[in-house]
Amino acid sequence: MQHYDVAIIGGGPAGLTAAMTLSRSLRRVAVLESPADPRNAGSHGVHGILGLDGVSPAEYRSRAWSDLARYGMAELHETEAVDLVPDPRGGGFEVVTEDGGPFWARRVLLATGMTDIIPELEGFRECWGASIIHCPFCSGWENRERAWGVVTADPEFARKAPRAFAAWSDDVIVFTDGEAPAGDLGVETVTGRIRGLRHDGGDLRAVELDDGAVVERGTLLWQLDQRPVPLVSRLAKDRGLALREDCYVKTDGSCRTSVPGLYSAGDTITETQGAIESAASGSTAAFQIIEDETA
């Protein structure tokens, strides 16, 4: 069994930034990343990180591993972690993987991200990450000066949408996707259920409703429901990992979870899910791991 100072589950901005900080602190690190496409695979680019703005997610990972290779402390394992078994001898974890090859690590960082619940709508997957976006700060620039639709059943969010997104579009309407609005939202509102999306190669053209109506739009802001990845759900069920009511991993503000020696960073702990926020969270987790080791 291979031994590491830290096992990082997930190879996105949070996990890779933590791997860099730990590598430069001479910690031997295993980064476990599922060979399946990452959650942001459909994104046209990573934004907000100076010097890397606009690079594709694949290029971001390639550059990150090129940087990590200089230190020789981090190893990539393209496999999925399915369980963490606390070492009964007094510290550390056995990291169980889907291919059966276990690892042992003194500390583990969960940087798995979340699982988006994708609507089964014609055209959604083709547009997701390009003209259907989850975050205006991530993709608003690329969708500026287009007709926007905001898909939400949250009346407060709906009311502020035209002002909140005015920098990117002066034509913003709200789709409640079949939900009855709570009173007058003060914004143009479409209440019919969405049944499909018209697009040209992933470039949204219009929204089709159940009643046959077609509403022309160029961009949808759609913040999808999310659920934890299977590993996190299993740890919550079997290992005492505490989750918040909204299913994100509960931490103490320094990326420590309820399980001693287990940390969490990035999209697993917050709905604020930009690349730079995740990277900062990964750095915080790495510093806390090092501090806890020397306490």
Rank of each mutant, 00 (worst) to 15 (best):
A14Y: 01
T17K: 04
M20G: 01
M20V: 04
T21S: 13
T21E: 08
L26Y: 14
L26H: 09
R27V: 00
R28W: 05
V29M: 00
V29S: 08
A30E: 00
A30Y: 01
V31A: 08
V31H: 12
L32E: 00
E33K: 10
S34W: 01
S34N: 03
P35L: 06
A36G: 10
D37R: 15
D37T: 15
R39F: 05
R39I: 12
G42V: 07
G42E: 01
S43V: 12
H44E: 04
G45R: 03
G45Y: 09
V46T: 04
V46I: 12
H47R: 09
H47M: 04
G48I: 14
I49K: 05
L50R: 13
L50T: 14
D53Y: 08
V55L: 10
Y60W: 15
S62Q: 12
A64V: 01
W65N: 11
S66Q: 13
D67M: 02
L68V: 09
L68I: 14
L68A: 11
R70W: 04
Y71S: 06
Y71C: 11
Y71H: 13
G72Q: 03
A74T: 05
A74R: 03
L76S: 07
H77G: 08
E78V: 14
E80I: 07
A81T: 15
A81H: 09
V82T: 10
V82M: 07
D83F: 09
V85Q: 12
P86D: 07
P86L: 14
D87I: 13
P88A: 14
P88M: 10
P88S: 15
P88K: 14
R89L: 00
G90W: 10
G91D: 01
G92E: 09
G92F: 10
G92R: 15
F93H: 14
F93E: 01
E94R: 15
E94T: 15
V96Y: 03
V96T: 05
G100S: 11
P102A: 07
F103P: 05
F103H: 13
W104M: 07
V108N: 02
V108Q: 03
T112V: 05
G113H: 09
G113Q: 11
M114R: 11
M114E: 08
I117H: 01
I118E: 06
